[in-house]
């Protein structure tokens, strides 16, 4: 029974993680590569540098190169991203399954299980992507940034607070508890995210704003796929005879 639940989550994570790489190569990664050309200000004065494909600009060999990862696992940048997406998919899937298991959300076999999974995925997208993005917008390389530790702390607290608050708001009947949930969701934003001292950037505003939308869109796709698959697989895991 336990192993079945874990395998159900891993299967959903594998599917969503695999699907994320083409989504990223369609929407976010071309913008990351374009932005990297501006990251050190090298391309800032050359208006012809970022051609429409964007893919060639990352090979300039500038000092601050990211993600090429030849020395890491030997799979190159694409292989590293495929692997990282699978691991991220499985990790998020296990955490989403944990939320469902520990808060008593059950997935009936059939359509109802799928719908509950989709709703759970949408809630996770709100908690992990949308709510943190109010304070820390999805950032391309070369963005002005505050201290990394401060941002990671704020991000983790915001994800946890948004998830807990959303659960109170959506699944508890008492209005006073719902109000507390709303307050918990709002709290990290009233406290305030770490803001960089200097917000001037070499990265064109067009790339940055297109990127923020692309990141939220691709992760919505990811979380709905993950939630839906999780709902279907968890229903099967729970419905089958325990080993």
């Amino acid at each position: 029974m336990i192993v079945r639940f874990l395998l159900a989550a891993l299967a959903a994570g594998l599917i969503a993680g695999l699907a994320m790489t083409p989504a990223q190569y369609g929407k976010t990664i071309p913008l990351i590569m374009q932005a990297e050309a501006y990251e050190n200000g090298e391309a800032g004065h050359d208006h012809h540098a970022p051609d429409s494909s964007g893919a060639t600009t990352a090979d300039d060999g500038h000092a601050h190169s990211h993600g090429d990862g030849e020395s890491v696992l030997g799979f190159g940048r694409f292989g590293n991203t495929v692997l990282a997406n699978i691991v991220a998919g499985c990790g998020f899937a296990l955490m989403l399954a944990a939320v469902a298991l520990l808060t008593g959300i059950e997935f009936p076999v059939g359509r109802e299980g799928l719908i509950r999974g989709l709703v759970l995925g949408a809630g996770a997208w709100f908690s992990v992507q949308l709510a943190p993005s109010f304070g820390l917008p999805p950032a391309v390389p070369g963005f002005p940034y505050a201290d990394l530790g401060d941002r990671q702390t704020w991000w983790m607290l915001t994800v946890a607070a948004s998830a807990a608050g959303l659960w109170l708001l959506a699944l508890r009947p008492e209005w006073i508890v719902k109000a507390v949930g709303l307050a918990i969701i709002a709290a990290p934003h009233l406290w305030g995210a770490p803001v960089p001292e200097d917000i001037v950037s070499n990265v064109p505003a067009y790339i940055a704003s297109a990127y923020a939308a692309a990141s939220l869109a691709t992760t919505l796709f990811f979380w709905l796929l993950l939630g839906g698959a999780l709902g279907v697989f968890m229903a099967r895991a729970a419905g089958s005879r325990p080993a």
Binding site: I32, L94, Q129
Partner: peptide
């Protein structure tokens, strides 16, 4: 799940950062 997400998204290791760079940006991790 927490260990996997931490490793991909938040761990300070340079090796992990480089390997997961595009994934971290795409998911909006700091």
């Amino acid at each position: 799940g927490s260990i996997l997400v931490f490793g991909v998204g938040l761990a300070n290791s340079q090796t992990l950062h480089d390997a997961a760079h595009d994934t971290r940006h795409s998911y909006g991790f700091p």
